[in-house]
Computed example of a mutant assay.
Amino acid sequence: MQHHTHAHDDDVVVFNIGMTIARPHRIDLWWPVFVAMPRMIAELERHRAAAERGEAEDLGFLGATTLMGRRGPWVVQYWRSTEQLYRYASSADHAHLPAWKAFNAAGRKHPGAVGIWHETFAVPASGVETLYGNGAQIGLGAATGTVEVSRRGARARTRLGSRVA
């Protein structure tokens, strides 16, 4: 069995964002919110690729995983810093701010139809431990790459806070 761990050695910001649908029959109210996030993730992925080629500024976005839960969809995003996350969120040059303004306008007209939520965790490099077994690659490992688990240690306790050797 092959075991891997994340390759990222620096601090990371884990940003969870999602929506809840209170009125499923009102697709006209929740669909615009639902489709806004994939557009933002696509924009961030394009910008990340351009930054890797040296053609754009690094926004700090490392990657994302989209999940579906009982209450609705959510996205786990990985960022280099909270400053970069907040800069993206408040920039008029990117997709988030217009989507946020549209959501607020719709929310005032139809309160309670669609809920949104987010959680931000600033995690020091010493607070991250991962394991990906038998080819599983998701989360931080998918966003930043993986290395053989032996590069950090065979046990979770050993990997927590270790750097790639």
Rank of each mutant, 00 (worst) to 15 (best):
Y132T: 03
T158L: 04
P32R: 03
T120I: 15
V147W: 02
R159F: 08
W100K: 05
H118I: 04
T65F: 09
A89W: 13
G139E: 06
W31K: 14
I138D: 04
W79M: 00
A64C: 08
T146L: 01
T66D: 02
G115T: 01
G60T: 06
D58S: 08
V164A: 06
G133N: 09
S91T: 09
Y86P: 03
L140M: 10
A36L: 00
Y88K: 01
V149L: 06
A22D: 08
A89E: 13
L44K: 01
H25Q: 15
W30Q: 00
A49E: 14
A49L: 06
P73R: 10
R39Q: 12
A156G: 08
F61G: 04
V35T: 15
L140V: 07
A102K: 04
G112I: 15
I17T: 14
S162W: 10
V75I: 14
A42E: 07
I116M: 07
P24K: 15
P124H: 00
R159D: 06
P32M: 02
G133M: 06
G115S: 02
E83I: 09
T66R: 12
A49C: 01
S90C: 13
F15I: 02
A156T: 06
T66A: 13
H110L: 00
D9H: 02
E119V: 12
A105H: 05
H47S: 14
H118F: 15
R23C: 06
G18V: 08
E55I: 05
I41A: 11
D10M: 11
K101V: 15
S150C: 01
W74P: 01
A113Y: 08
S162G: 12
D58I: 04
G63E: 05
G69V: 14
G135E: 09
L67H: 14
Q2M: 13
R108M: 08
I17R: 12
R71W: 13
H94C: 09
T130K: 04
I27Q: 14
G141F: 03
H25S: 11
Q2S: 15
S91N: 07
A36P: 09
R152V: 02
G18S: 05
R151D: 11
A142I: 05
N16K: 12
H94I: 01
H96Y: 09
R157G: 10
H3A: 05
G145Y: 11
L140K: 02
A22I: 02
A142K: 09
E129T: 15
A36V: 07
A154L: 12
Q137K: 15
